[in-house]
Simulated scan of single mutants.
Amino acid sequence: MENTKERLLAWSTFEQVDIRIGTILEATDFPAARKPAYQLVIDFGPDIGLLKSSAQITKRYSKEGLLGKQIAAVVNFPPKQIGNFMSECLVLGSVGAENDIVLLTSDLKAENGLRIA
Rank of each mutant, 00 (worst) to 15 (best):
Q39R: 15
N76W: 08
L9S: 09
L8I: 12
I116D: 00
T23L: 06
Q16S: 07
G96H: 01
R34D: 15
I71T: 00
I21A: 09
A97N: 13
T23C: 11
I82N: 08
G93N: 07
A33K: 11
A32T: 15
E15L: 05
L103D: 11
K109P: 07
T13S: 08
C89F: 02
E15Q: 10
S62W: 06
A72D: 04
A97Y: 02
G96N: 08
F85W: 10
V95A: 00
L104W: 08
P79K: 03
N3L: 12
T13M: 02
F85M: 13
G96I: 00
E64Q: 12
E6G: 05
R60E: 13
K5M: 11
S53N: 10
I101Y: 04
A72L: 15
F14G: 04
I101H: 01
S94F: 08
K80G: 03
L103A: 09
S12D: 14
E2A: 15
A110V: 11
I57D: 01
K69S: 03
I57S: 01
D29E: 15
S12M: 06
L50R: 13
F30W: 03
D43N: 14
A73D: 01
E2D: 14
K63P: 09
V102E: 14
G22V: 03
Q81A: 05
D47I: 00
N99D: 14
E6I: 05
I42Q: 04
E98A: 07
Q56T: 12
L90A: 12
E111I: 09
G83N: 03
K69R: 13
I57F: 01
K5S: 14
